[in-house]
Every structure is written in C-alpha cells, then in structure tokens.
Design a protein around this nucleic acid. Structure first.
Length: 735
DNA sequence: TACCGCGCCATTTTT
DNA sequence: TGGCGCGGTA
C-alpha cells in the first residue's frame, strides 16, 4: 500500500488518501493530475474502501480514458474492466444500450456524429421545405445542441420571439425525426441518460448504490448537463448517502467556454456539496522555473480565478527566447532555422512543437518546413472515421444494423451511382413523409421507376444482411466492401486518392479486427456479432488525427490541441494583438481572460525551452496586416526573457528595427520589404510605421487614403481599436 | 450526372 | 489567400 504513495509529493499523497468524502483537486499544469486520479482509485481499492465495481471514472477524451485504464491495469492486480472508466459519451452509450427499452430506444440505435447530425438537419429542412437561408443548418445544429446541453427539450424552451419559436418547432421536428430513425446525436446521449435516470427511480438507485466513488477529470470543461448528470448519479446534495465525488480540474486551463464548458461548475460544486476537501497541486514537474514564472505572471492578470501558483525545484533553466520578425515569412524562417540547429545538436524533431492560436498560421510554417526538408506533422486534419470513403462503408454497415437510419440510407442509396436521381429520391421522401416511416420501409409503397431502382438497393442491403449474419465482423466488413461496389468504385478511380481511399477501406477491416480482439464476442451467438458496438465505437472515437507517431517529425498544432501535451521545446508563434488574443474574442464576455488562459496553456507545454515569436506584418485573408505586439508578451517580466531581436518602443508598440538606422547583427536577416512603404506621402510616415497618439497611445499605421490636407491614415491602436485619423488634425509622433 | 467556376467566408473543437 | 459550397452548364 505504501508503494502506491512512495513517489508522490505531500499534496499529491494528501489528495490520494483523502477520506471518503467529496473532494475538489485544483491541479495546475504538469502537477501530476492523472497520476493523482489513478492512484486515488488504486488506493481506494487497495485499502478496501471501494470495489472495482464501485468506481466510475469520467473523462472527456477517449485518450484520457485509455490512459487511466492502462495505468490502473499496471497498478492493480484486479481486472480493470470491472471499473467503469470512460468518456461521458461512452458511459452514456453503455447505459443506454443496457437499458434501451426504458430509454425508449431500440437496442441497435445508431449514434450520429456532428457531421451526420448536420446531414440529418439538412435533410429535415428539405423535407419540411424550410428556407435554409433563414435557418442555416449549422446555426440550427448549434441551437439544438446548446439547448440539449442546458438540459432543455424542445417542449421546455422559452421562446419570446417568432424566430426562436420557429427554431424550437424545428428542434421538435428534429427530435421526432431522430426518434423515428432510431438515431442519437452526441448531446442526446447525455440528455437521454440523464432523463432515464431522473425518471426511473429503481434504476437510479441501482447505480447510485453501485457507484460509490465518482472521479472526474478535466472538471473545468464540464457543461451544465454534464454537471447535472454527475450530481444525479452521485445522489445529489439531499441524498442520505451520496457517492463521493472526486473532481480534478484547473480553472486556469479552462479554454472551451465557446463550446459550452462552464468553469463555474467548480465553484458550484464546492458550494453545493459543501466540499470539505479542496487541495491545490502546485508543484510542477514539467517545466523549468523561468517558464513557470512567465506562466504565473501571465495568468495573474486574470481576475476570475480560484488561485494557484506553480513552482518547481528544478531551477530556473533557460530564459524565454523572444523573436520579433518583420514578416510572417521571416518568422517562419527563424523558427525553422532554429529547429534545424536544435536537431543538429541532437534534439529529436518530435520533441519540438509549434503552437499557434489559429489554424491559418500553419501554412507559412509548413511552407518553410517543407522547403527546408524538415519533416513535420500537423494535428487537426480529417480523422479516420470521418473520411468520406470510410463513412460510406459505415453507412452500409449501419443500414444492416438499423435500416431505419435515413442518414445512412441517403448517403449511399446512390453511391456508387446506381441511377437513382433526385426525382426518385424526392418521390421516396414524400412517400416517407406521408406514411411516416423510414426511407427504407417506404420503398415498398413506391411504384414505377423509382420502385425498381430503389427496390434494387433495398435488395442489396437485404442480401448484405443475410450474407453477413453469422460472419465474424472483419469478414462481414470485407464482404460489404466488395458487394456494395465501394471497392470497385475506388479501384476505377485512377487518381492518387483512389488508391489512398482503397487503403482506407482495407484499414476498416483492420480496425474491425482490432476491435474484435479487444471485445469479446458474446457467447450465445448473436446475429451480426459486435456490429452495433463497432459502429458506436466508430462514432464515439473518430480515430487519431492521422497518427504517424513512428516518424520523427516536428509537431504543429493549435494551442487548444496542445492541451494535455508537453514538449522539450515549444515555439508559440503569432503573438500579435488581434491574433493572440484573437480579435473576435474581445467581443465576448470573459473573452480576454479565456485567451489569457490559452496563452497560459501554451506556455506551460514547454519543458526546457520556450520561444515566443511574432511578425510585424502578416498575410492573412489575402491582406497584409500590421499588428501590435501581443499584450501577453508584455505580461512576461523582462527578467525572464532574452530578446533575439532588438526590443524597442515603449508600452505595446512593437519593436521594429528602424529603416533609418542599420540593424544590429542579431536583427532579422532581411530588411522590411518595400511593400511596407507605398509611395504615398504621409509626412515622413509609412504603412507599418509605429506611431504614438496623445490620446490613443501607441499604434501602428495600417492603411492610408487621400492626399494633402485630406490625407487620412488608419491606425491599429491594439486594445484601443482601429481608428481613421486625419493627418492634418491628428498629432502623430513616430514611435 | 459531373464538373467547373464563382462567390463567400475566414478562432478555437471533443464526443 | 484559399477552401468550400452551391448553382449553372455540358
């Protein structure tokens, strides 16, 4: 028992060995939070305070769930499968499958991922003849999901205007369509489970008695519904013997407000449950002192905090390197040069990460990496189960499992093409509406040409189904790929991506093989063994972002994608006002603070060395923009930084080696190009020039128009905004 | 039915 | 600047 605790620090050990009560663990970046979470579970079991069956572990990502599982398997002699550890969605799927009848669902209900959901909404709008200009599908999807994530059904939405009332009607229609088709979208998984457990008291009590310890990771990312779900399962505040909630999170790393996360849940939890144990994990095992000091200094500017300060006993380490380039191209060139020199010194490329606020920034970086022949990997592209050809194949499988899945039906009824045109489909959809049945079931009501063509498709599905009833899953998949004509279709495509798509189709068979190996086939033989489970798996876990971990490649990703990861060397690029913090965020409540948390996340990814860089001019959306230095850069104390380019200018004015004085040797190699200074007479000023205004402070000239006494310039004053000023009136001093 | 071209848009995203 | 989605045309 002691060995479990042997390597923990005092606070970690305190958290792990807390009595069986509610607890809130404020775990700073790199403070060993996953370790504490898993050791807590192991400790509870080892000391006999909990049984594996009594544990419910909740995470946000499949990756986190897998990691917890793996660590526990290594720590405990018990079968880790007895513990329920998974994502909110995965656990809900499990509960809904087990109690599908009580939840009002058929056993083989299908799960819609976001893309499927959007197609379903588009189809709905089409059948209802709704103007999708007035009700854009994406916007409606967002509306519906936001309601569900608040725990609000269509019947319960407060609508005070016609527009909202109409959207609520559409929400209701969508609910009905999903029910008819036996499909469930992501938020529905949670809401259904929540409703099931609130409505069905015996069932709720069963699980409340079973799960005596509920442990949640990344608690700061929970939305309202997820928190309600946890409360319900724990037995709530007024239960006689509620389960112990052990919530781990970091308010400073809350960066998903835009998708419904409510940091407020941390405070609410502490208050509502009168949490007797709040522990802060502040010792950081990841980064050197200077990096942590910078992170602490940055985040200290936020006002809405629970309060925490990271420290390390590793020493201060290297200073933070700052580079201010003229252009985005120069910035990228600097980054790549630096990477090459690091690699020459023996660093692996895969220990280096390039982080940016927005995906658009990856382009320049990729360009330079590519030209320099440095292998790299960009996170965030299409994932395996989201690829077109894979979705097509899955659609056939879905129809075998559940013929009422109209989304799947519509997707492949004419793919590969089999002469089913828009007119046939329209006839089918009209009939389906009349008979209030699924597309598949409606085919028998058709007549004439549509009947023949679509009937043949139904025959195909029927024959696929009967041919695969008793086949092991991988063989069933193989059969479907052949008989659906998908293989032949991509084989006939001679283009390079035809080949690639074929490979992906084969990869589905591998995925099925792996899936079967990891999941036992149920003993009394059932039809289509594991098919529904595999399909749920494909929806719930879209697969890695094109992982090729074997290759030693530089890692490129957004700051969001980097959360939870760490690297020896980190470059944070594009530290400019408007970009990071992003200009759109400044309009949102709490937007700037969330941006700052993002910056905090970015900085704390670095173990040994941190670079922060910016470009004075950047090509964005086809236009050259002149941005000011990010305020977040200014928030890092000078004592922690080492400028690789001369730092000039006061306040937020960007340093810019002047045109009028020769650049020192350490300055960027290339002078600012002539493009920065169009031939307009601006009284000695030029576009891109730093200026100072008596009232607005430091700014940068971004555009000019007119001439003589009419000449006006547009100036980006950063936080003060963008202004047009008359040259003859405004007093501008070169900065 | 398939392809081309135009026009619009442009933070962040897991399940 | 570039990607995507829609609409028109061959």
């Amino acid at each position: 028992m002691t060995d479990l605790l042997a390597t923990l620090n005092e606070e970690q050990a305190r958290a792990v060995t807390l009595p069986a009560q509610h607890a809130l663990i404020l775990a700073g970046a790199g403070s060993g939070k996953t370790r504490v979470l898993t050791t807590r579970i192991a400790w509870l079991i080892q000391t006999g305070q909990a049984t594996p069956q009594g544990i419910l572990g909740v995470t946000f990502t499949n990756k986190a769930a897998r990691e917890m599982h793996a660590r526990l398997a290594a720590m405990l002699p018990v079968n880790p499968k007895a513990m329920w550890i998974g994502t909110f969605h995965g656990l809900c799927n499990r509960l809904l499958r087990a109690h599908h009848r009580d939840a009002g669902l058929p056993q083989l209900f299908q799960i819609l991922d976001s893309g499927d959901q959007l197609s379903a909404i588009k189809r709905l709008l089409k059948t209802l003849n709704v103007d999708d200009e007035k009700f854009p599908p994406r916007e409606l999807q967002h509306f519906i999901n936001a309601q569900k994530e608040q725990g609000v059904r269509a019947s319960a939405v407060d609508a005070f205007d016609d527009f909202t009332r109409r959207r609520v009607e559409l929400y209701a229609e969508y609910e009905a369509q999903c029910q008819r088709e036996a499909v469930v979208d992501f938020p529905e998984l949670l809401l259904r489970t929540y409703e099931l457990l609130s409505r069905n008291e015996p069932l709720r009590q069963h699980y409340q008695r079973r799960f005596r310890h509920i442990l949640t990771d990344e608690f700061q990312d929970t939305n309202k519904l997820q928190y309600q779900w946890l409360k319900l399962l724990a037995g709530g505040e007024n239960s006689e013997s509620p389960a112990c909630l052990f919530c781990v999170g970091d308010d400073d790393q809350s960066i998903y407000r835009f998708r419904g996360a409510e940091v407020g849940n941390m405070l609410a939890f502490e208050r509502e449950f009168k949490v007797p144990n709040v522990i802060r994990l502040e010792q950081n095992y990841r980064s050197c002192g200077n990096i942590l000091d910078a992170a602490n200094a940055i985040i200290a500017n936020n006002t809405q905090r629970l309060g925490k300060e990271l420290w390390t006993d590793r020493g201060e380490g290297e200073p933070i390197r700052v580079y201010e380039a003229f252009t985005d191209g120069d910035e990228a060139r600097f980054v790549v040069d630096e990477i090459q020199s690091l690699v020459r010194d023996g660093m692996s490329r895969s220990d280096i990460a390039l982080l940016y606020r927005a995906n658009a920034l990856s382009r320049v970086l990729e360009h330079q990496l590519f030209s320099a022949g440095v292998s790299y990997r960009v996170y965030g592209g299409l994932r395996f189960f989201e690829r077109q050809e894979v979705k097509h194949a899955l659609a056939y499988l879905r129809l075998i499992a559940n013929p009422d899945d109209d989304t799947a039906f519509a997707r492949v009824v004419n793919f590969p093409t089999r002469g089913i045109g828009a007119r046939s489909l329209e006839a089918l959809q009209d009939a389906a509406r009349t008979y209030n049945s699924s597309l598949y079931a409606t085919v028998s009501h058709l007549s004439g040409k549509p009947r023949a063509a679509i009937g043949a498709f139904v025959q195909l599905i029927e024959s696929l189904r009967s041919a695969t009833v008793n086949l092991p899953l991988p063989e069933a998949v193989d059969h479907v790929l052949d008989q659906s004509g998908l293989r032949a279709h991509y084989e006939s495509q001679k283009e390079k991506d035809g080949r690639e798509r074929l490979e992906n189709l084969d990869e589905i068979i591998s995925a099925a093989t792996n899936f079967v190996a990891e999941n036992e086939v149920p003993e009394p033989a059932v039809e289509h063994p594991l098919l529904a489970d595999f399909l749920a798996h494909a929806s719930l876990e879209a697969g890695d972002h094109q992982a090729d971990a074997s290759e030693d490649a530089v890692q490129l990703m957004t700051v969001h994608a980097a959360k939870g990861l760490e690297f020896d060397v980190v470059f944070v690029c594009g530290l400019e006002e408007g970009l990071f913090p992003h200009e759109n965020s400044l309009m949102e409540t709490d937007g700037l603070e969330e941006e700052r948390r993002l910056m905090y996340v970015a900085v704390t990814r670095a173990r040994q060395r941190l670079y922060v860089s910016l470009a004075q001019s950047r090509m964005l959306h086809g236009q050259t923009r002149y941005n000011m230095r990010s305020r977040f850069l200014e928030e890092i104390p000078d004592t922690l930084t080492k400028w690789l380019t001369p730092k000039s200018g006061g306040g937020q004015a960007p340093a810019r080696p002047s045109h009028f004085s020769p650049s020192p040797a350490s300055a960027p190699r290339r002078p600012a190009s002539a493009a920065h200074a169009p031939g307009r007479d601006l009284g000695g000023l030029r576009i891109g020039q730093n200026v100072r205004h008596a009232r607005f402070g430091a700014g940068i000239i971004v555009a000019a128009e007119g001439s003589g006494s009419d000449a006006r310039v547009q100036i980006n004053f950063g936080a003060q905004g963008m202004k047009w000023l008359l040259m003859s009136v405004a007093k501008l001093d070169p900065a």
